[in-house]
Simulated assay, not measured.
Amino acid sequence: MKALTWQGKRSVRVDEVPDPRIQEPTDAVVRITSTAICGSDLHLYEVLGPYLAKGDVLGHEPMGIVEEVGPEVPNLSVGDRVVIPFQVACGRCFMCERGLQTQCETTQVREKGSGAALFGYTSLYGSVPGGQAEYLRVPHADYGPIKVGTELPDERYLFLSDVVPTAWQAVAYADVPAGGTLAVLGLGPVGQMSARIGRHLGFTVVGVDPVPERRAMAERHGVSTIDLTDASGADVAAQLRERTDGRGPDSVVDAVGMEAHGAPEGAVAKAAQSAVGLLPDKVAQKVMETGGIDRLGALRAAISSVRRGGTVSLSGVYGGEADPLPLMTMFDKQIQLRMGQCNVRRWLDDVLPLVEDPADPLGVMDLTTHRLPLSEAPGAYEMFQKKEDGCVKVVLEP
């Protein structure tokens, strides 16, 4: 089959790789009909190469048609249409029973000290082949896949794999009070959806991003915006306070993560990320696991912006173990800080009715800006990273 494989920093290509097959009785094989590029994939493209090997198959936002099922998968049949959550979880362990599927004790990558295995996402998370491919082997298919209908187009359902539940969790973790104000830093796919969910739940929402097309998309959904290019992180906080009676928003979602731009330490962190990329993998892994390599502009802006007693919710991915945080400010302001990979199935009952609603209240049909064949994935990665051609979300068709 054809699949998108990692070849090195800023280098991916479509290769012929072996077809997946049933290996365990709870496996399924799914023919992929749509698969998206996630902002987290850009971390693999740029920063997290030390945890990848040439030929690793990328992608963790797929959906498709069941082609084969193992003998212990009673919930699926050949021909079913399914969305695949990005984590691999068993549904039965201590963590899964508590709605913490990304901490699944059955698939935890203990040798790396990591949580549940993820599709297409480095040796830190199990080196499980990903879904930017024609076919995908799905472990624990007796629990993971989400069976959906056949009447609606793929875009209605595809983002259940990651974007919509991740944004829902980000807003839930933000703990916005009734009638409160939510700021969303970063208006990529998760930021877009977080802002829309905030509006859907009745909050006042302000989005911050440097890219005009992203701000315009958010504004179409009733979100007021701030142009990050007109302000430093400190000025963003000042502008947010001006809009909130001088206090700052009740809650802030950081939907940016490790590659944030604009902070004073950003150039240093960017240099550190570049330097790590030049080291042998084993050495680079050690540096990443013991050093502060993240660009913390968005996180520092979130901490500075949020009102005293407010909540900061992190949905952007961070990778450094020793990043310096302004703990004195966090303590003084009594800030709550919540974070983590999304527990997709925990939020399914909340989000599935919304994506199936004919009114499309979250605007899932207004998120994809580029639909391309899998063969054009290398160029799509470059376009998405450089934010060219108004690119917000790319969906690939194998």
Rank of each mutant, 00 (worst) to 15 (best):
K2E: 13
T5D: 09
K9I: 15
D15K: 06
D15E: 15
E16Y: 09
P20D: 10
E24G: 12
P25M: 11
T26E: 15
D27G: 12
D27K: 15
A28Q: 04
C38P: 07
D41Q: 04
G59Q: 03
H60P: 06
P62H: 07
V69I: 15
V69R: 05
P71H: 13
P71G: 12
E72T: 07
D80C: 11
D80L: 08
V83L: 02
G91W: 06
C96L: 13
G99R: 05
L100K: 11
C104D: 09
T106W: 07
R110F: 08
G113A: 03
A116F: 00
Y121Q: 09
T122P: 02
P129R: 03
G131F: 04
R137G: 12
R137T: 08
H140Q: 14
K147N: 08
G149R: 03
E151L: 14
P153N: 12
Y157L: 10
L160Y: 00
L160E: 01
V164T: 01
P165E: 12
P165V: 10
A170W: 00
A174E: 03
L182C: 03
L182S: 02
L182K: 01
A183C: 08
L185R: 01
M193S: 10
S194P: 05
A195T: 08
R196W: 01
I197R: 02
I197V: 12
G202M: 10
V206N: 01
D209P: 10
V211R: 15
A216R: 11
M217K: 08
A218P: 08
E219G: 05
H221I: 04
G222E: 05
G222L: 05
G222C: 03
L228M: 12
T229K: 13
D235N: 06
A237T: 08
E242Q: 09
E242M: 03
R243A: 07
G246Q: 07
P249K: 05
D250L: 09
S251R: 02
A255I: 01
A255W: 06
G257P: 08
E259A: 10
E259W: 00
S274M: 14
G277V: 07
L278H: 13
D281M: 07
K282P: 11
K282T: 15
A284C: 08
Q285K: 13
M288R: 11
G291Y: 10
R295D: 13
A298H: 05
A301H: 04
A301T: 12
A302C: 08
S304T: 11
S304Y: 07
V306G: 08
R308Y: 05
R308A: 15
G310L: 04
G310W: 04
T311C: 11
S313R: 01
L314H: 00
S315W: 03
G320H: 02
E321F: 15
Q336R: 15
M339P: 00
N343Y: 03
W347R: 00
L348M: 09
P353R: 08
D357C: 12
A359D: 15
P361F: 06
P361V: 08
G363M: 12
L367Y: 04
L367A: 02
H370E: 01
E376H: 04
E382P: 00
E388L: 14
D389M: 10
C391N: 06
C391P: 07
K393V: 06
K393Q: 06
V394I: 14
